[in-house]
Every structure is written in structure tokens, then in C-alpha cells.
Amino acid sequence: MTRSTTLISLAVGITILLLTAGCTSPGTAPAPEKNELTVFAAASLTGAMTDIAKAYEAAHPDTKIILNFDGSQALRTQIEQGAHADLFLSANTKHMTALQGEGLIVNDSVKTFTKNKLAVLIPKDNRANITGLSDLATPGIRLVMGTKEVPFGDYTRQALGKMANDTAYGPEFRNAVMKNVVSEDPAVTALVAHLRVGEADAGIAYASDVSEEDKALVIMLPIPDRYNVIAVYPLGIVQESKVKDQAAAFAQFITSTEGNAILIRYGFVPVDR
């Protein structure tokens, strides 16, 4: 080893030691001035929940809401692996039920707080001239949808299944539509990006997936309720939470008129009560 490499490795070593020493010094962190509430929310809630959290914080200055957005499956895994969360907002009941089964969620806190519907999203200029669901089967249309693993892709297939069973469309319709799929996007962000740059002619996703700024760029073609798969969004308080009361208060706020208004603005469908 030459002298200079010795020096470099020494320097690196010392830096690492200092850094780790700094990280492990226990019990010196200042006590939080605000009550922190950690919320794990499905990625589709990103826009709506950011606004709701802001509104809640404005009304409750002593509370700070920490939001963690990811796919519901990923969030579930994180909670299972011991990640700290107080409130879990899932994009489907499957993952919530699973966590309940594992005793990780306070059972009687679970309730549906909003719903979401599938829609056909089309770039504003609509070069493929898609005006109705039947146009999705036109050969050569470039269609994007979710993979069968992600909820919005799974529901898209369910919706197409319902249409295949309906004499108005039939199985050939479904086959033709599936043939037009150029990409099965694993995230709705990729799907929206494909639409925004006009690379795809149409995509199927949730109405809430079109963000405020994308609304100007994308036409939304509704899918009738009889074919639609309406996603149910449950929330639940995490068993390990030390601030269950505050979590409950925030959950209450989400389902309040004010919270609902924000959700509706982002394309969600209110729950009938």
C-alpha cells in the first residue's frame, strides 16, 4: 500500500467512525414540539391527502402530519416489517383485511372513507378519435393499462370481463382491446406519463389518477357503473400507534364534509352514508 492510499483510507475510516459515532449517540434528540402523526397512504391519494393534511394542520397547529405514499402492497409490507405508522389508508380492502388478520390494525377503527372509479383517459388532442368504449377495440389503437398485479390493472381486467359477459360488447371486444395494449404499466404515474406525451392513445385508470394539472391535458371518458369496478378505500389505525386518539381525530377529519370535498375535487367518489 502506498503512502497516499494509506492516508486516504485513514481519512475515510476516520470519517466513517465520526459519522457512526454521531449517529448512535443516544437520547440526545430534542423532544418533539408538535405531536407527530405518521400516515401511510396509498399512492393514488397523494394529491388529496397532501391537501387534507395541510387543512388539518391549519386547524390543529399542534399536530404535524407525516405522509408516506406508496403502493398499498408496499405499505402493507412496511407495516408488517415493523415500520412506524399511526394510520393506514389503503386503496383496497385486501391489504387492510390482511393486516387486520395479523393483528396489526385496530379492528373497530377500520372503515371505508372513499371510493374510486375507473375511467378511460385520453390525451386532449385525441388523435385516435376515441369517443366511446367501443373505440378501444379499433385495431391499431395504442392502449396502456396497469399490470394485472396492481389494483388499477386488476380492476381494468375485471371491468373488461364484465363487458365481455355483456352481449353489448362480448368476448371478441375484450380480445381486441387486449391486443391493443402496448404497455402494462406497473405504476399509474407511468401510465399518465405515456398519455401526457401522447405516446399512448388511451389508458384505463382511476379518475383520481388524473392530477389537477393533468386535467387540462387529458379527456376523461366515464365507464358506466355496471361495468366499472369501484375501488373501496378503507382506513385503519395501526395497533402499535402511541397516538391513537389523534389518529382517530384525523380519520374523523378525512371523512368530514371538508375532507370529502377535497377528495371529490381529486376525482374520488364519496361514500354513501
Binding site: A74, E149, V150, V182, E184, D185, P186
Partner: peptide
């Protein structure tokens, strides 16, 4: 994009599967 046999490489398949069966 992500289409089996055409553009779905291993990382895409892994990410896709991650959403369903971990």
C-alpha cells in the same frame, strides 16, 4: 413500456410481481 416477451425485462417483471406476490 411493459409487455411480456416484447419489452418486459427482468427488472420490470420483478417490479410487476412485487405489486402482487412478493
Amino acid at each position: 413500456g411493459n409487455l411480456q416477451g416484447k419489452t418486459q425485462t427482468m427488472p420490470l417483471a420483478i417490479y410487476g410481481a412485487l405489486q402482487g406476490d412478493m
